[in-house]
Design a protein around this nucleic acid. Structure first.
Length: 414
RNA sequence: GCGCAGGUGACAGAGUGGUCAAUUGUACCUGGCUGUAAACCAGGCGGCCUUCGGCCUACGCAGGUUCGAAUCCUGCCCUGCGCA
């Protein structure tokens, strides 16, 4: 697709930096896509999302279909307009919910396998039924029954009007038999074709989704099948084993056409990002920064910290010294230019740009159940990840990817 | 001073003769979270011991009745409300 241009490659690997042009602006890749499932980045305003440097926001077809309805979003002028985001947008097809509301429920297998870990699972009971033609869902809101077919998903996404949409797919559980996964894969390919046919030539771009679970042959088969179809780019879906996300991604990106963008769906921890970028992925979305943030887990250069820990109660330091986010280093973001500000406001007004929210304060907010807690943590986390990917991009441009990666990971794991 | 009500683990608040180391909620602690059913979920939460088992200390304080008491009786201390 001519909208995507590779600017620089990481030599000896599949990795690259590029630009992806959309009707609402250019995305510099690799880029981290902010997740805003229900036309909202949880706990954040779009001003805050913009302020951390986010380039794209991703909504979800299933959620927006249930509430407030595709018709209403369309009437509002499309997803971006509706939520107050002027930049590029994407929508996921609802395919992931086939898994997360289906086989994923009551299982320890999520987006990333954690069957070997302690910890526990959420409620169980599938709310999904799959057949050749499509999927019957039970609404998580009221239990009502709904049906998605590939055509239906695409029609909804047309109404939602994001710049980039995804084909309807089935994300299988790795616990399913290989035989089933193969079947599901073939079906997903048929669905991809139907999605593409329904899409025809719209101004929106459409990405097809590669599946295939943990199996090399299935992954390659899927990549080959999708590569033959006329998609504008590709999503790489599936539930992964943490330690071989990179490997699995490598299998498929070796096959997918180089000139088209690749979006690794739902992946987003720092270690994973490096691996996937090296293996040729251009886009990533992940709920981790915002979800973890709301749950009190905060990214730092030395790894994640749990702000609920006793030791942070009296820590009057910023989450991370030197962090450029407005939580750590700029208590009052300055909306005015330097000169203007000094004229308009006396020095005591604040806005020095030197303040910060302390760990103790944020820890307090969490304990007090103040929603500001989730907001501050989300701002910091989103900034952390978005900027990590930006820095990775810069390191590629500067021919210093490996060096940057090693330095970052060394510190992050310490 | 009299009358009534009551004193339970960090707090709130169940239990009112054995099944009680004591329901429940909150707080607290520990884990988990990767295309968001997620400002959520799970576990722990008197002490000691290697055990889905055992021992010790516990329901204001001190005695008593009982095979057995947080639960019944007596006295004391304290709190709240009402009346003087």
């Amino acid at each position: 697709m001519e909208n995507f241009r590779i600017v620089k490659k990481i030599k000896g690997t599949l990795g690259r930096a590029g630009t992806l042009v959309t009707a609402h602006g250019v995305i510099e890749t690799p880029a981290f896509v902010t997740v805003g499932t229900q036309a909202a980045v949880k706990a954040l305003t779009m001003e805050q999302v913009r302020a951390v440097g986010a380039q794209v926001v991703l909504g979800n077809t299933y959620h927006l279909y249930l509430e407030p309805s595709p018709e209403l979003v369309k009437k509002a002028g499309g997803l971006g307009k509706f939520m107050g985001w002027e930049g590029p947008t994407m929508t996921d097809s609802g395919g992931f919910q086939v898994f997360s509301l289906g086989a994923g429920l009551g299982s320890k297998v999520g987006k990333v396998d954690r069957t070997n870990q302690s910890g526990t699972i959420r409620t169980k009971g599938s709310m999904v039924k799959i057949d050749e033609d499509g999927v019957t869902f039970r609404s998580h809101l009221d239990g009502s029954s709904h049906r998605f077919t590939p055509e239906h998903s695409i029609q909804i996404q047309h109404r939602l009007g994001a710049d980039i949409i995804f084909a309807f797919d089935e994300c299988t559980s790795p616990e399913a038999s290989k035989n089933y996964q193969k079947e599901a894969l073939e079906r997903t390919h048929r669905w991809a074709k139907r999605s593409l046919e329904e899409h025809k030539k719209s101004e929106q771009s459409i990405f097809g989704i590669v599946q295939g679970g943990r199996h090399e042959d299935l992954r390659q088969r899927s990549a080959r099948a999708l590569a033959r179809m006329d998609f504008d780019g590709f999503g790489i879906g599936g539930s992964f084993d943490k330690k071989d996300i990179k490997t699995a991604v490598g299998w498929v990106n070796k096959i997918l056409p180089e000139k088209k963008p690749r979006h690794l769906l739902g992946i987003g921890e720092p270690e994973d990002l490096f691996g996937a970028i090296e293996k040729g992925c251009d886009l990533f979305d992940c709920v981790a920064p915002t979800r973890l943030g709301r749950h009190g887990m905060i990214y730092t250069a030395r790894g994640k910290i749990n702000i609920f820990k006793e030791k942070f109660r009296q820590s009057f330091l910023p989450i991370e010294k030197g962090c450029g986010c407005c939580v750590c280093s700029n208590l009052t973001p300055n909306p005015l230019s330097q000169g203007e500000r000094e004229e308009k406001y006396p020095p005591l007004w604040g806005g020095s740009g030197r303040g910060f929210y302390s760990r103790a304060y944020i820890a307090h907010l969490f304990r007090a159940h103040e929603s500001l807690a989730g907001t501050l943590a989300s701002i910091h986390n989103l900034y952390f990840i978005v900027n990590l990917v930006k820095n990775i991009r810069q390191s590629i441009l500067d021919d210093k990817f490996s060096k940057f990666k090693n330095a970052f990971l060394h510190k992050y794991r310490s």
